[in-house]
Amino acid sequence: MAKPKVAFYWCASCGGCEEAIVDLNEDILKVVELVDIVFWPCAMDFKYQDVRNMKDNEITVAFINGAIRTDEQEEMANLLRKKSQLVIAFGACSHMGGIPGLANFWDKETIFESSYGKDCPSVDNPDNIVPLTISSVPEGELKLPAFHNTVKSLDQVIDVDYYIPGCSPAPYLTMKAIGAILAGELPKKGTVLAPEKSLCDVCERNETKPEKMSLTKIKRISEVIADPEKCFLAEGIICLGPVTIAGCTNEGSGRCITANMPCRGCYGPPPKITDVGVKMISALASIIGLEGEENMSEEEVEQLMSQIEDPAGYFYRFSLPKSLLRRKRMN
């Protein structure tokens, strides 16, 4: 019997997800033994035409990382969907839009302006030349993929079977997923292939926090040296652990936590949560100023909340395109 065929592709991403595959280390040899890698532009020389030449559903599983922000990415996502039995959104950007998704607080015009415009401090562009989809040159027409106004998650463009979350996905989760695919033991379509409970469930610092959580001072991680043992949130350092599933490590408190950094939410929310940011707003606002709330004036509450300088950016760091509002209204 022929070996299952596997494709890897990257869209709007940083390359960290490719690293996450390489980080399988020796395990990758086991994978290569069991499957044929038929497409992996980052690592091997394949052409898009190779994929176009395949039969529909010829690829057993395509791992697509990165968000969708250009025509090319959208086209390749559709192509891989057509040629693959399973599509797995690999990593935070393809799962929820990720860091590139923060571009949804602007639009194409403002992004081009700040990247190529005259006010951009790192560009000398007096003629205000901006990339065009079609440029005419004496030799003919040059085409560039169109840049979208809004960044999307993979499932906002194509049908996605499973998600492997994280920025970047922990190798053990990838191995587990590959194992499940090869064994044909996959859960319900649409499942995020990671634990269902939030990070606090495994966080070793969870025991240090008081039963009654009440915050008054919010501290930014850049301004303090965090206690390496105490719950960040209880200390007033915003941690997205309560609204983010565990899974970034299979042992201990989680990758960022172990490095004494609060959780930033790259693994995305537990299954019942549709919008990470708004849930965090509700949870956090509930405990900020809880003590003595009955004696607080509206101005005092405003003041407390003003400690959170960029709530949208903080709470939607990895999930803006996948949020209920998806992007900023520019007007």
């Binding site: 409970k197 959580m213 009440s214 565990a246 949870a283």
Partner: peptide, 13 residues
């Protein structure tokens, strides 16, 4: 109970 992560946010509320 399958979802609760024990974050304690609700308790004091």
């Amino acid at each position: 109970e399958e979802i609760c992560c024990g974050c304690n946010i609700c308790i004091g509320l």
